[in-house]
Design a protein around this nucleic acid. Structure first.
Lengths: 188, 188, 188, 188
DNA sequence: AATGAATGAGAGTTCATTCAT
DNA sequence: TATGAATGAACTCTCATTCAT
């Protein structure tokens, strides 16, 4: 009965965690409502469907990554190695929190086969991620091989997140990050 | 072993593909019924729940992998490299079919956070996979570093499958396999 | 818990009355479920949507009219006048029952502007009705003017049903029928 | 009478068309809000419910008809026939606009069975309509038979409007009006 | 073994309505 | 006056499951 204002952004922020932990299909509007302290029906004032909400979630997380994480790769004044390390330090707590992994990786494997509407959001995220890594690798490598190393690194991190979740072991991610970093130093 | 082609096995076989493409939660018993040419109700003669069916599916696929894929790693008379190549050749068509990836990888990211019942099935599969790769790497590497290389390789393949599905590009898997193979030759 | 078989036809039959009295949009699946002694969800075993159910309802009523009412117009061995009277006697109790009028008339005014899916069902019914009346009028009138008299008669009956419902007065329908009958005798 | 163009009247005026085309139950407060350029909530400053709004709509349309349409029947200085023609000319564009028919006819068939609150508004309208026609017919007919002819005419027009909507044919209304007019000339 | 019919919980969504601002 | 945000009931529909046959 009391009016408690909720902003669109608050809803999205609170929904991120629910989707990241439970996935898209297993998460009901009721779950989200509870997490947001709203009634089920109130969601539809802000988003016209669960799908649209998820898209907003993907967009916000992607935007956050662009601004706060991937951007580190392009910072001036730090060595490529330092930027890599800084980037990992920023990223790690996000994806290890509650051992729930990467929202985009989770969503890719869950929904690529049954929700075409998400595909472009997912691709856009990974493309930006790969571009950021590529930028770092280009310090020591050709554009082309930097791209391949970057792809490889993203894959490895996503694979590591999968195993991290399966074995409840955050160290698997750490080792993967070390390997990604190592690749920077090695000759092509 | 008397080969008893029970209907149970046929159901499982047909269900594999549906689950692999659509995931667990998005797949309804109706979907499975259609795929199996059965009525929804008929499932419950063979399996007491959707969950139990999925477990049977995971078990059958795991068993198949043990017998037909991972076993290659332990074959006598072939070099480690040749066994790696043979194993890949066996595995590749399975996981690239319909670009639907690896059932266990898909299930891990979809259900680890919401279906504890599957966890052990998933872990068991990946442990056997890692063990097989480790066995191969041990030819050139210490037990410990062979384990790590093996873990790394599985992660990379799973990550590659994720990107393969996202970008509709089977070559991403092939490159990953080449890197996995390469690791065999290199010194630690 | 006990299994009580309901046939599609029974559901349709029971739904007719609910729709006729309450209209389409005001009738909920719960209302229909109650009327049929089923659970809401059970409907969807027989019909895949409320809309499809309504179409089945329209089809069944139309079929009934063709077989039992409009067919009278084409009977051999009775004068046109007698057939008219016989037809009215058959039709009257149907449309005066509960003073709920004609399902097709009701549905036309309620849904023509918002459910295009019903339009053809409604048109088909009225076309058959008009054809039946036309056949009778043709005894005394040219084809063309029989058609117009027939159209006029159907309109008048539908208008009479509207007023009957509004004023709770079945006599309004009776007078209309008398006028329709009268038209048969008069010269053009 | 000071013409006070209140917002209330504007709301009603804009709502008329929506209700006439879509009916009562299919029209949501959102639809009306959009049509009026208001927020849903703002309605409730002017009307305490959707039902009350509809009643205001019915009242305004009825008032308009009394003042601008039915009144023609009582004008001095014109023959009954001329008044009939004048009345039709006034009425026709209203009820053929968008082939949406007569709000009162539409509402009668949609809501007589489920919204008793509207009944008196509907009856009042039709009674005034019938009285107007009766007044015209009384020129050539007894009071009683004028009443019956009038009832019949209104029914026929409403029936014609139903068919007009169903078959997208405004001529059906025109023919009905001609018949209504014809009745004036004929002897009883 | 298999099916057809039913169940009941719960899904996503819509809606009329409320009310502090 | 008008609005933005919320409510909660009701809506259509889906689902995993049951079970007599």
């Amino acid at each position: 009965m009391p009016v408690q204002k909720t902003t669109k952004d608050e809803i999205i922020t609170k929904s991120i965690e629910v989707f990241r932990k439970q996935g898209y299909h297993k998460t009901s509007m009721s779950d989200l409502a509870t997490a947001c302290g709203l009634q089920k029906g109130s969601f539809y004032y802000h988003f016209k469907s669960k799908e649209e909400l998820m898209q907003a979630v993907l967009q916000m997380v992607h935007g956050y990554y662009n601004k706060k994480v991937f951007s580190i790769a392009y910072e001036k004044g730090l060595s490529a190695e330092d930027r890599f390390v800084k980037l990992f330090k920023k990223q790690e707590p996000i994806i290890t929190q509650d051992i729930a992994g990467c929202l985009f990786g989770n969503m890719t494997l869950e929904s690529i086969g049954n929700k075409k509407e998400f595909k472009n959001f997912l691709k856009a995220f990974f493309s930006d991620w790969i571009a950021a890594f590529q930028h770092l690798y280009q310090e020591n490598h050709s554009e082309e091989s930097a791209f391949e190393l970057s792809q490889q690194s993203v894959m490895e991190i996503e694979g590591a997140l999968m195993m991290m979740r399966l074995y409840d072991d955050k160290n698997l991610l750490k080792s993967a990050c070390l390997r990604v970093l190592d690749r920077l130093k090695k000759e092509p």
